[in-house]
Design a protein around this nucleic acid. Structure first.
Lengths: 159, 159
DNA sequence: CCACATTAGGTTGTGCACAACAAAGTTGTA
DNA sequence: TACAACTTTGTTGTGCACAACCTAATGTGG
């Protein structure tokens, strides 16, 4: 077994890429990527909204979203219009075609859920909770990096 | 709470990016990225090896590794030499500088482990196992995509 | 030996991520 | 009303990921 397989970070990294690959197979007929799909899920569920709002939901910044939304607009799934009340804000709206995808892609979450190997909703929620906790812990670490003490003897786990 | 937060796939996606961001803070002084770091971990642990072997360990293909290893060679951390016995094979070897990083970066896994919020080695292993199982399930799905049956009523979980 | 398939690695093109920066609009305040 | 500070979005440059393709080297059957 490769050395990195003992690290939480690598298990996360590998699982994320493999999941993205599974989505790729499902989404390819619509020329959609996984990040584009979750943007659509957000728009379907929470409705048309600003770039910033979408970025907060997906935890992505404008450097990622601007080109991605431009591609989705070119594909005819969304439109981008500046609000007259505040010309800084761009509202991302679903087109009829983008709205129709909600029905066309209804099999996607079913395929993923059925193929996930997770036996029920509770085990899925447990995994989600564990990942959310890890995310929050890593945000702390990212935003408050402890000064490196060379001689530190922190408790040892294998993250 | 954003709609996508109920999906296993998004929890995975967000946790992976946030973990990478935490590593970025730790690795930035050495101009290393997270994928470069796990390549080094593999070389430190399993020794010099071919590009293919490294790709199997990290689950990455030559399209990703070739440019990355070229950057690591330019940084002076590894060398790439063709084997005389089989000129197709390139051996990736640690330079003295690359080997020295193992000591210099010894704080990195400690910082991540201490900041991960995982209380002990057992809980880390549980999470790793759950992620490995998910990875294998997603590999199955990726490699054997079931033909989409529009009327399928698969058991519902929220993956 | 020769034609062919196979294998290893590299190249090209597209799409995220993200840091750093730029530009335009809005707001608070002197 | 000026004008500096702030907000929102977009742009640029770098580095993964990965599909598709290419080349060189090796192996294999005839």
């Amino acid at each position: 077994m490769p050395a990195v397989d003992h690290l939480v970070c690598f298990a996360l990294y590998a699982a994320n890429r493999t999941t993205t690959q599974a989505y790729r197979v499902l989404l390819e007929p619509w020329n959609l990527t996984y990040p584009q799909y979750i943007a659509l899920v957000t728009l379907w569920t929470d409705g048309d909204q600003s770039v910033t709002s979408l970025g907060e939901a997906l935890q992505l910044d404008s450097g990622t979203l601007s080109p991605m939304l431009a591609r989705m607009e070119a594909a005819g799934y969304v439109t981008r219009t500046r609000r007259s009340a505040d010309e800084r804000v761009v509202t991302v709206s679903l087109t009829p075609r983008g709205t129709a995808l909600r029905t066309e892609l209804a099999h996607v979450p079913r395929c993923i859920a059925a193929g996930s190997g997770l036996p029920d909703v509770d085990s899925a929620r447990e995994l989600i909770d564990a990942l959310h906790q890890l995310t929050e812990a890593m945000k702390d670490l990212r935003d408050h990096p402890e000064p490196v003490i060379a001689a530190s003897r922190a408790p040892r786990t294998t993250a």
